[in-house]
């Protein structure tokens, strides 16, 4: 147990000492939020609803980013620099090492959620009943699992450059097609049809439904669970193959 706790503590220290974390996961979504709710007039008929909707978009955008990019690139870095090799020689079971990573990632997501929600309140005066805030936060936290699986898959790549290129592209495409930057309704019909099958859209949609007072749809949960299982399996398989040298 002490082993697990120390590993958790170390992962947390490392994440919060990383200056890029603050920029990519917090500064960018918050600036976007400011621009699209305060600076540019989006022509939304119901400003209050739009402010809530877009707050969920930006929070899920932020969490999706750290799940795919931060986790993925870190994993590649640790392997390419030989740190993972050293860990394999220590008695620390691989499962605890992995658990530590996931825990650090979860805490990171949680703090992003709290910061961005707070920014939404401060910037555009978004208010909701407490239980809705909590539901939205929990949804974003738990539904980020498929993206963590994508992150571990990115983490199987050999070079940091490849991993960062691929994850960046994946991230942006999923964000745009998933309706995180702008509502999916204004995209062309074909892109909408594709977007609705993406985990990013389903991720955001759960939270968008919640702020309107509805529970997330079954489709949201099923599509996300499906992606989670598929990415987890591919990532496990890839890891097995890489280690069986």
């Amino acid at each position: 147990m002490k082993l697990v706790l120390t590993q958790f503590k170390i992962e947390l220290l490392r994440i919060f000492r990383n200056p890029y974390y603050v920029f990519w996961s917090l500064a960018m979504p918050i600036v976007f939020y400011f621009i699209f709710t305060r600076v540019i007039s989006t022509g939304a008929t119901d400003a209050v609803a739009w402010n809530k909707h877009y707050l969920m978009s930006m929070t899920s955008f932020s969490v999706m980013g750290s799940a795919i990019m931060t986790l993925g690139i870190r994993l590649v870095q640790e392997r390419s620099q030989g740190w993972s090799t050293f860990m394999r020689i220590t008695p620390l079971p691989g499962a605890i090492f992995f658990l530590g990573k996931m825990f650090g990632q979860m805490i990171m997501h949680l703090s992003s959620i709290i910061c961005i929600f707070l920014a939404g309140y401060l910037i555009s005066g978004v208010t909701m009943p407490v239980h809705l805030w909590i539901y939205c936060g929990l949804w974003i936290l738990i539904a980020s699992l498929p993206f963590l699986a994508v992150g571990t898959l990115v983490g199987c790549m050999k070079r940091v450059d490849t991993a960062s290129g691929v994850s960046n592209a994946l991230y942006l495409v999923m964000a745009i097609l998933g309706g995180m930057w702008m509502p999916i309704d204004i995209l062309p019909k074909l892109m909408q049809a594709i977007g609705k099958w993406l985990p990013s859209y389903r991720f955001g949609n759960g939270a968008w439904e919640l702020v309107q007072g509805n529970p997330p749809k079954w489709e949201d949960i099923l599509v996300l669970a499906g992606y989670f299982i598929v990415f987890m399996l591919i990532s496990l398989y890839t890891r097995r193959r890489q280690e069986a040298i």
Binding site: L3, T6, R14, F86, P91
Partner: peptide
């Protein structure tokens, strides 16, 4: 190992404590 690589963003003392903790 030949290429010593040490986890970044940790202080020397912290990494030593961490490693000791594994044994």
């Amino acid at each position: 190992l030949q290429h010593v690589s040490i986890m970044d963003r940790l202080k020397v003392k912290e990494i030593l404590e961490l490693t000791r903790n594994y044994y």
